[in-house]
Design a protein around this nucleic acid. Sequence first.
DNA 1: CGAATTTGACCGGCGC
DNA 2: GCGCCGGTCAAATTCG
Length: 546
Amino acid sequence: MESAARDHSIHNCRSIEQPLLSPETAVDHDHHGKRIVDELDFFADNKGRLMEMRDQTVEVKEEGAHDHHGVGQEKQLPDVNTGLNLLTTYTSSDKSSMDDGTSSFHNMEDKHRTNELAVLQAELGRMSVENQRLRVMISQVNNNYQALQVQIVTLMQRQQNQKADHQTPEQHKMINNGSVVVEEKQMMNGFNHIVPRQFMDMGRAEKDELSQCSLEGCRSQDCSGSPPRNDIVESMECGKSTSHVLHRDLSGRISTTNGGEDSPDQEFQGWVPKKVSKMMSPRDVDQASSETMSMIKKARVSVRARSEASMISDGCQWRKYGQKMAKGNPCPRAYYRCTMGTGCPVRKQVQRCAEDRTILVTTYEGHHNHPLPPAAMAMASTTSAAASMLLSGSMPSADGLISSNSFLARSALPNCPPSLATLSASAPFPTVTLDLTRTPTSSEMPLGQPNQLPPSFPQNMMSVPQILGQALSSQSKFSVLDSFQGLDSATHSLADKVNAATAAITADPNFTAALVAAITSIVGNVHSNNNTNNNVTTRNNSDSNT
DNA sequence: CGAATTTGACCGGCGC
DNA sequence: GCGCCGGTCAAATTCG
Ligand SMILES: [Zn+2]
C-alpha cells in the first residue's frame, strides 16, 4: 500500500500537463472575419466590444430603427442574458457590420453608420457601467450576507460564553487553543446597528486600531478572546440553520442547481475537526456534509505572483496541514488553513509554477468567519470580491464563455496586457486567476515573453483590455491603498472607506485589472509592513522546490 | 513542553 | 471494480 501511495505521488510529480493546452487555442479567432469579440470578457467593458445585453440593442433600435437592417437580427441573438452579461453574443456586431457592408450604401450611409456606431458604443458603455454596478451590488450583498453570518456566529459565541462563564467579554483572552485570536465582539456589536456592509470592513476597522494598539495595551478596547472551541462549534451549529436560509436567498441562483440542499453552512462549519463531526450524530453530519460537499464547488481565487518565499504574505496566519505533489508540477503543493479564527474555513494552496519557479501561485478558497487585521483584510476582501463576482454574476455562464473564449485569450496574449485575470471553469470549482507576475512595482516591464501564462494553462483567460485598464485600475488602487494605510483623515469610518475601496474595485469596469492592481498593492504593502510572520519564515523549505 | 510542520495514510470523486 | 488524484487527517517529528 505504501508503495502505491508513494508511487503515485512520484508519478504526479513528474508528469507535465502540457498536452492540455493545445485544444481550443487553435480556434479560429475570426471565423466570422471580424473582430472576435471576446465573449468572455465580461469584465471588460466599454470598449464597444461588449456584446452584452440586448438592452443595448433595444435602445439602439429606438434611436435609429430605420436603418438597422442588421439590428433586427441582432436583437434576436442576444437575448441571452439579462443584466448579468456573460453570455455574450459574439457575432452580433459582426452581423450588423456585415450586413451593412453588403448593402453598401453611400457616404451618407457610412456616416450614418458611424453615428450609429458612436451611439451604440455610448450605449454600450452605459450599459456596461450599469452592469458593473449591478455586479457590485451583488457582490456587496454577498459580502453583507457573509458579514451577517459571521456576526451571528460571533454573537452566538459570545452569548454562550457569557452564559457559561458569565464573565465580561474582556476577560476571555485566553483561549484554550492558545491561538491569539482576538475577536472584537464589541465592535461587532457596535457596528451592528450600523450598516452591515461588508463585514470585513467592520472587522478591519476595529481590528486596525486594535492590532495597532494592542501592542501598547489598549485594553480599553477590550479585546475579547476567542471562546473555547467547543462553544464555537455548537454555536456554529445553531447558526447553521439560520444561515441556511439566508444563504439561499442570496446565492439562490447558484444553489439552484442543488435544489434545496445547498449547504451554506460549509462556511460556517469551516473545517470542523473530524472529531467534532463524528461526535455529533454521524448521520446528520454525514448527510449534511455530503450534500454540502457535493455542491460545494466553491469559487476559488488564485493569485500568481513572483516570490521567492514559499508563501506570499497576505496578512493572515496560516497553518500547513498538508503537502502533495501535484500532477503536472514537479513542485509540491502546500495546503494551508487559516488559523486566525477558530473555525475559519478559509484555505489556501500554494504552489510554484512548473515552468517558472519564481512564480508562486496561491489559491484561496472560502471566506473568513472572523475579523481580520487590516493587512489581511485587503487581500481577503479583494479575493472575496472576485469570488463573489464570479459566483454571483458569471459563474453559470462562465463555462460557456470560457470555452469559447480561449481563442480570444490566445489572441490577446501576444499583446501582453499588463495584467491578466484568468477564468477557469475546468476545475470542479470556478476559479479566477489574477496574474501579478508582471505588475509588481512595474519593475519588470520589459515585456517580453508571455511566460506568465505557461502553456500549462489551457484554461481560459481573460485579458484585460489595456485601454480601460489604466484609468480604472489606478483608481481602484488608490482607494484600496487609501483605505488600507491611511484611514485616518476621513470623517468616515474605516468601514466606509474600505467599503468604498472594495466597491471601487468591483465597480471598476476593468474589474480584473482593478483586482490585480489592488492585490498587488496589498501584497506589496503587507510585505513591507508585516514582514514578521509567515512570509519570511517560510523561506526555509524553499529548497525543497528546487 | 506546547505548537507548528512533516509526511504517509486515508478518503471520496472520477474516468476507464 | 480499479486505479488515479486531489485533498485532508493525524501520528511523528521538529521547532521555539
Ligand atoms: Zn480566517
